[in-house]
């Protein structure tokens, strides 16, 4: 029994090593990084973080990223809830085909869409806005949300709907005050996945923005190429992008595994 616990420990160590290195780098001065190898920061410095928090072109990157990720999550969940309800409760013309078609969009290579997306969002004059990135990410997040939510709704007995109807609840009131609270774990998991995809995706986000809505991740690629080897700064920016994910995952830790299992293929 005890021998088995070695495996997860070794695996987690393997996962933490590159992250440790990134964090360690972020506390080193450029001089120390370039002068040679050191396992721990010798001249501990917070300058890299100070640069990021005082330079608008850096910290606006974070604000932009968080803005379009939030908008995307809200839109995705808001439209996916009624759709998932329809798929889980009713049969209607073309329901299976529609469900499958939605999922095929999850399979589309983002690289295929980069250029047409640029043209589409330029044509509707949304280029370089939060809304453009948020809407573009909907292509991948809505199908996933519908899929996850439908799985959770399938676990709620239909009697709940009928009882509420008999008790004289109108549909919107039933949906908002009884149904959604009873699948709030599912909403949490779906929101988590929307957040996750929108936060980590870069190709589309970068293609659809120039200055005003540029994501933090794109700011990093620019710095890496233009400012030469400012590794410490890059590492500090990278470290800061891990934090929102870590916070979000902490909140849904008890539901992640369940969220996967309840979806159906």
């Amino acid at each position: 029994m005890k021998k088995r616990t070695i495996v997860p420990i070794v695996y987690i160590l393997f996962l933490m090593l590159p992250i440790y290195w990134l964090v360690a780098m972020s506390f080193k001065t450029t001089n120390e990084i370039l002068s040679g190898f050191s396992l721990f920061p010798q001249t501990f410095t917070l300058d890299n973080y100070k640069t990021i928090f005082t330079d608008p072109s850096w910290y606006w990157g974070y604000i932009n990223s968080i803005a379009y990720v939030s908008i995307n999550t809200v839109i995705s969940i808001a439209v996916a809830l009624p759709a998932a309800y329809a798929f889980s409760r009713y049969r209607f013309l073309g329901d299976k085909q529609l469900f499958f078609w939605l999922l095929t969009n999850r399979m589309a290579p983002a690289a295929v869409f980069a250029l047409p997306f640029f043209q589409l969002y330029s044509a509707v004059e949304l280029f370089d806005t939060y809304l453009a990135v948020a809407l573009a990410h909907c292509l991948f997040n809505i199908p996933l949300s519908v899929w996850i939510l439908e799985g959770f709704m399938g676990g709620i007995p239909k009697e709940l709907d009928e009882t509420a109807y008999v008790d004289g609840y109108s549909f919107p009131r039933f949906f908002a005050t009884i149904f959604i609270p009873s699948i709030k774990a599912g909403v949490g998991v779906a929101a988590f996945f929307c957040f996750m995809f929108s936060w980590v995706e870069l190709l589309l986000a970068k293609t659809l923005t120039a200055v005003a809505a540029k994501p933090i991740a794109a700011t990093m690629t620019k710095t890496a190429s233009s400012a030469g080897y400012e590794l410490g700064l890059l590492a500090a920016a990278g470290t800061l992008t891990i934090i929102p994910g870590a916070i979000v995952i902490y909140f849904v830790r008890n539901y992640i595994a369940k969220g996967f299992a309840m979806g159906r293929v």
């Binding site: 695996y11 987690i12 996962l15 933490m16 992250i19 996750m196 936060w199 980590v200 995706e201 870069l202 933090i216 991740a217 990093m220 690629t221 990278g238 992008t241 891990i242 929102p244 994910g245 870590a246 979000v248 995952i249 902490y250 830790r253 992640i256």
Partner: peptide, 13 residues
């Protein structure tokens, strides 16, 4: 939580 952490890091990071 620790295992899921890599999946939440932006891909270019």
């Amino acid at each position: 939580v620790l295992m899921a952490l890599p999946m939440l890091i932006p891909w270019n990071v």
